[in-house]
Design a protein around this nucleic acid. Structure first.
Lengths: 339, 339
DNA sequence: CTGAAAGCGCTTACAG
DNA sequence: CTGAAAGCGCTTACAG
């Protein structure tokens, strides 16, 4: 795919060497910032390089060094701002550490995830940060590890006894905080809206159910209205809830996206969140601050979570023998107008 | 920069060759899918490769071939869903064509953009798709071209006589459509909310002003309330507008994000969009469908725009001599509840 | 159809 | 401090 314009031969360190009147080893040393070379010489080399428009060839260098300064980041759903924010935090930290990120988007498609991972592997990546697509087999960390590439899993756990570095949030606690708040406001029948499957849903749902038990409130299974964890899904879930159980006046949502959809459905029905109905989201994506009305939500600091994932991965790269690392973000409830 | 686990030597085509009892040229041919090799032989080779866990080394292959199948995508603001959607469309099309994308985020920072471009260049990328950071010099396309790497610019033009492949939207027309609609509803004093700088703002503002002229309506400069093109900015702009000119009952926003902020400010003031105030966004990001209320907006099909950018880039890669290409998305007004 | 040889652009010991 | 040599893992003519 794409040769360079024919006839054009890119300058190499050999060209630089001949212009600067040194050997190519010297050029290599200068380029890599070695202090073995006297300033005068290195200046001359640098000038020569600039003059002939020399471009460092990372591929060649990495092939020879058998190493890479690129990290692969695989994201399951970029259209969800939550993941975009995680990605931004991750990328910033990685860039600070001198790494480049190669991003890939799986769109929750397992097959695509597999392809993407294979390509990253073939590129000889230095490490992988992944938010696994729904349904990812528990064996993934082991197999990536068997390739010899450092890995950090983000956001979604892979269940069971698998051991791998992980950065996520305490989802159960977050929902319990939201529920406690709602119960404190006098609600007894509180719905849970949105989410279809996956470990994060499981954890948030557990927190939801636990709260009822803790407060000795009877739990009604039909208060749980599942749906895609999207605006659309949240909208549909709220519509269904409103139709089925008119007495319910509060809900916590699987995530902020679903909460936005629910907000919209509330609006359609002429209900105002925060006065006619108390609604709480989860994630605290940027958009929650200026939604209509501003959304109360459980803050798990998406950008910071990404940054922490980067830290874990960096540590693993530097020290492969490290014991398993785990960063679990403490959630905090942020109250705005919706509930 | 992570070496592989020491002592572990990855299998090469030489290893495969010796297991399969052929020469390494044969292995190479088989791996690349050549039809020069009889099925029986190629099966044997493939089995041998699988058996010893051989991994194709793209770096080595690309170094030798002097080519790459990776494309660099540089995005100025990933937290804006509009760009995330463009990216998704772009990536899908590129993946279909067999390319891998290396994504980089500049966060509207020119220095970071420069660094990122340099690294992509050093990686020997097959092409670059860029949404230039605000303030990007007009010389960028020329300098990328001088590197010999195919380029497509997205969303924001770089002004003047520069010639480069471009995929964007007809921003002026889009705003005129929104304005015509509002005028058709009887509005005369229509505000423009959000946006600070940049070519896209310029184009949208031009469309805004032109409409007044076309309808022979007197134009009031203070109907333009600039702000960051974010929710926060849109919120602030609406607050300012409401305070300064109580008689204004309609606005078009720089983008959907700003419109969401405006929606939120309207809500704060007890006003309902679509009944007390007509508000129209721009972009038609996914979020508009289920905002509160659902946002009327100018649809420029972000994902499709990304896909079209990919098409242009792919064409340029295949045929560097092509004349300058330009894809300008036709906007369409989509009316929902906000205005 | 297959094998031997050269070479992509670097880095890395090793002499001097 | 600098130069000559080997080699990273592939691909690509070129013989046979």
């Amino acid at each position: 795919m794409s040769k360079k314009t024919p006839g054009f031969r890119a300058a190499t360190i050999l060209d630089v060497a001949s212009v600067a009147n040194v050997s190519k080893s010297t050029v290599s040393l200068v380029l890599r910032g070695s202090d073995l070379i006297p300033t005068e010489t290195s200046d001359r080399v640098r000038k020569a390089a600039a003059k002939i428009g020399y471009v460092y060839n990372r591929r060649a260098a990495e092939l020879r060094r058998q190493s890479s300064n690129a990290i692969g980041v695989v994201i399951s759903d970029l259209r969800n701002p939550f993941f975009a924010e995680v990605l931004v935090g991750l990328e910033r930290r990685l860039a600070e550490a001198g790494y480049t990120v190669f991003m890939a988007h799986t769109n929750e498609d397992l097959e695509r995830q597999q392809r993407v991972l294979t390509i990253l592997r073939e590129q000889g990546i230095a490490g992988i940060a992944i938010c696994p697509a729904l349904g990812t087999p528990i064996s993934l960390p082991r197999s990536v590890k068997s390739w010899g590439v450092p890995l950090v899993v983000m956001v979604r756990t892979l269940g069971g006894g698998a051991s791998y570095d992980f950065a996520g949030a305490d989802n159960g606690l977050g929902v319990r905080q939201a529920m406690d708040h709602l119960i404190g406001k006098g609600h007894r029948r509180i719905a849970f809206l949105g989410g279809i499957t996956g470990p994060v849903l499981q954890q948030r749902l557990d927190g939801y159910k636990e709260t009822f038990t803790a407060h000795r409130i009877r739990f009604h299974p039909d208060l749980i209205v599942t749906s895609q964890p999207t605006r659309e899904g949240g909208h549909a879930a709220m519509v269904r809830l409103l139709k089925a159980r008119k007495s319910v006046k509060a809900a916590v949502c699987y995530n902020d996206l679903a909460a936005f959809g629910a907000l919209s459905a509330l609006g359609d029905a002429g209900l105002r969140a925060g006065v006619d109905f108390d609604l709480i989201g989860f994630d605290n994506i940027l958009d929650t601050i200026h939604s209509n009305p501003p959304l109360s939500t459980v803050d798990i600091k998406p950008e910071q979570m990404g940054a922490e994932a980067a830290v874990l991965l960096l540590a693993r790269i530097k020290e492969p023998g490290l014991k398993v690392q785990r960063f679990i973000q403490e959630p905090t409830l942020v109250l705005r107008q919706s509930g």
